[in-house]
């Protein structure tokens, strides 16, 4: 399934958002997620089914002013 992950095109063989995070190296990481511009809380990731073309954002703590 073709997806956009943080703006970059990827081809991932996954079903859910939780699967995607594990497959792409985010397992256990402190991150927040959004799909197509909408926040997806962590407890909902396992049930959130991705569709081809979805734009997934994975954000983490970063320096800020």
């Amino acid at each position: 399934m073709k997806l956009l992950l943080n703006g970059a095109p990827i081809n991932a063989q996954v079903t859910t958002l939780a699967d995607l995070l594990v497959a792409e190296g985010f397992g256990g990481a402190k991150v927040a997620t959004a799909v197509n511009g909408t926040f997806v809380p962590a407890p909902e990731r396992a049930d959130y089914a991705l569709s081809a073309g979805d734009a997934v954002e994975v954000l983490a703590p970063m320096q800020g002013g």
Binding site: N6, G7, E24, G25, F26, A29, K30, V31, A32, E57, V58, L59, A60, P61, M62, Q63, G64, G65
Partner: peptide, 22 residues
């Protein structure tokens, strides 16, 4: 301390180190 959120890389996981620091 003010902090932010930015895109994380599954390879570098730079945000995780920053999280431990703050």
């Amino acid at each position: 301390a003010t902090v932010s959120l930015r895109r994380e890389s599954g390879q570098d996981r730079a945000g995780q180190d920053f999280w431990q620091l703050i």
